[in-house]
């Protein structure tokens, strides 16, 4: 039964990977689906590996490729924010699956150098985003406009906000992309800190719920799946919030469940479906390590 279920999931993963390519021509953002696909693929891969064999680097090559392929493709797209999120999802799953600490160290140590290399190869507009992030006041009406207007709108909300639909900055179009990426700014302006913190609390509740579900599952696949979805959701939230507060550069990442946007919403609901499915199947036990085919 368990194996069957796993195979079912596996097949899904495979189709997902293919579909990802097929869908590239459609209006969906394939990168959104790629994240779910990656979570499924990594979960199923690590599910089949005995944790004792995780020390063998060869075991990690395929999942590493599974992770880096979408990252590279999304980077090429180019969408730095999503690429980073995909990379972080993958890394977290590696970590939770029992990757050895020395392996982690080997991977993390060269990152600063890699960062330099990546920066040198960033697109100009991406560099501009980082530049404006560091010095938003240099370009008030240009690239820095979003961040400054966003901060202004948030600040004008104060503790209790200006009231629903009464935020001046949002309603008067000073805020760019107020329905999508900057929706949280609107919330902050109209409902104040109280409302905005409340929204953060609700989002946190979902994250914590997902993580608890992950820990309660009795099979590795379910655990990793639930963790991956939760981390995905969390990263979306964290990146978007940091972005509108001017903590990190602007990156075209929506606030899940709240921002207006088709594919992001669709994939997030899809992800939650998987999460709940893992909860439903939480009592299906892991097959003993001896039965694993790898």
């Amino acid at each position: 039964m368990t194996l069957l279920a796993l195979v079912l999931h596996m097949g899904h993963v495979g189709k997902g990977a293919e579909r990802w390519i097929n869908l590239a021509g459609l209006q969906f953002q394939p990168s959104e689906f790629a994240k779910i696909a990656l979570v499924l693929a990594l979960a199923s891969w690590f599910h089949r590996i005995d944790i004792k064999r995780m020390g063998n680097p060869l075991r990690l090559i395929i999942p590493a490729i599974l992770t880096l392929l979408p990252v590279a493709l999304v980077l090429k797209e180019p969408n730095l924010g999503t690429a980073v999120i995909i990379g972080l999802i993958g890394a977290t799953m590696f970590f939770a699956a029992g990757m050895r600490l020395w392996q982690i160290f080997l991977l993390v140590a060269p990152l600063p150098f890699l960062g330099k290399f990546v920066y040198a190869h960033l697109h100009d507009y991406q560099k501009a985003r980082i530049e404006t992030f560091l010095h938003p006041e240099h370009d008030r009406l240009g690239a820095g406009y979003n961040i400054i207007q966003s901060k202004i709108a948030l600040g004008s909300g104060g503790m209790w906000g200006e009231g629903y639909l009464r935020g001046t900055q949002g309603q008067l179009n000073f805020l760019p992309e107020k329905q999508t990426d900057f929706i949280f700014t609107m919330i902050g302006e109209e409902w104040g800190y109280a409302g905005a913190a409340g929204v953060i609390g609700l989002l946190a509740l979902l994250v914590v719920g997902g993580m608890l579900m992950a820990m309660r599952s009795r099979n590795q696949f379910g655990r990793l799946l639930a963790l991956g979805i939760s981390v995905d959701f969390f990263l979306y939230c964290a990146v978007n919030l940091s972005m509108v507060m001017g903590v990190i550069p602007v990156g075209g990442v929506p606030l899940p469940l709240i921002s207006y946007g088709g594919s992001a919403m669709l994939t997030m609901m899809f992800g939650f479906g998987l999460l709940l499915s893992s909860w439903v199947h939480r009592n299906e036990r892991d097959v003993p390590a001896s039965q694993k085919d790898l």
């Binding site: 005995d50 944790i51 004792k52 970590f95 939770a96 699956a97 029992g98 993580m211 992950a214 820990m215 009795r218 590795q220 655990r223 990793l224 963790l227 892991d286 390590a289």
Partner: peptide, 11 residues
């Protein structure tokens, strides 16, 4: 299972 223990701590 061992993987669950590791997972829980790391999660």
């Amino acid at each position: 299972t061992p993987s669950r223990g590791v997972f829980t701590r790391r999660a």
